[in-house]
Amino acid sequence: MKRDKSGAGSLRADASRNLTKILSAARAVFAEDGLAAPMDLIARRAGVGIGTLYRRFPTRDALVAAIAEEYVTDLVAVTRELGEAEQDVRAALCGLVDWCAEPGRGALAAALADVPTERFHASPPFARARHEWLELVDGLVRRGQRDGVVRPDIGTGDVVGLLNLFACHPDRLPGQVGVHPGRYLRLMLDALLTGPARLGELPGAPVDLDALR
């Protein structure tokens, strides 16, 4: 007699869908309300019961770690894709800047930035992904220097430092800079490049004297 496996398959599919919904809801809630947001708010946003959430992530730290791993894994994928698709390193850096500075993603990065880094580095998947990302950025910087479009007197840490400042801490930037971090991130990165093309047109609008008043 053949065993009916449809029930087990359905359960696995439901579990996968619930995981996707939980992670999506957690990203949105953490970006909006910070990492201290109530877990039941995340469950409601995901459309699952609080028991389902806790079965998958027994603690808040487990959920935060999963979100951090997902973020850095996505960062690796985007950086690799840009590096492979763009012949001009300036275009690849521009795409990376725009991805990091996207408002919802920047807010999530800002929330995660408040967590002590040793908590993330204790996770092997996060540590591996972060190492891979740093290697990819280093490859872009070195390639740009060989092509003569990136200043020879900068290092990978200069690029990472600017990304960290403007993309991970927009809430701590003053006034207009915090409202449009992507604009100022491009301005700062522009100074690390050479040649007339650089990063192209800036996002947002110039801040005129009336705005300062």
Rank of each mutant, 00 (worst) to 15 (best):
M1F: 07
M1R: 10
K5N: 14
K5H: 12
K5I: 12
S6Y: 00
S6Q: 05
G9N: 10
S10N: 12
R12W: 02
A13I: 04
D14M: 11
D14V: 08
A15N: 12
L19K: 12
T20S: 14
S24Y: 00
A28L: 08
A31K: 01
D33Q: 11
G34F: 00
A36I: 02
D40W: 03
L41D: 03
L41W: 00
L41K: 10
I42D: 07
A43Q: 13
R44A: 13
A46D: 11
G47I: 02
V48C: 04
G49I: 04
T52H: 01
L53Y: 01
L53T: 05
R55M: 01
P58F: 00
D61Q: 12
L63T: 05
L63V: 13
V64P: 11
A66H: 05
A66C: 06
E69L: 07
E69I: 10
L75W: 05
L82M: 11
A85H: 11
E86T: 05
E86L: 06
E86Y: 07
D88Q: 07
A91M: 10
C94S: 14
C100K: 07
A101E: 06
A101C: 14
E102C: 02
R105L: 10
G106T: 14
A107F: 00
A109W: 01
A110D: 15
A110H: 13
D114Q: 15
V115H: 02
V115N: 01
V115K: 01
R119N: 06
R119H: 10
R119K: 09
R119F: 06
H121A: 15
A122H: 07
P124W: 05
P125G: 10
A127P: 03
A129Q: 11
H131R: 14
E132D: 15
L134N: 13
V137F: 02
D138K: 03
G139M: 05
R142K: 14
R146C: 05
V149E: 13
V150H: 05
V150A: 11
G155L: 09
T156Y: 03
G157T: 13
V159Q: 10
V160W: 05
N164V: 08
L165E: 11
F166A: 09
A167S: 15
H169G: 10
D171G: 13
R172C: 12
G178N: 01
V179N: 03
G182H: 08
G182D: 08
Y184G: 02
L187S: 06
L187T: 08
M188L: 07
A191T: 14
P196C: 02
P196G: 06
A197M: 05
G200W: 04
L202P: 08
P203N: 09
P206N: 03
A211L: 13
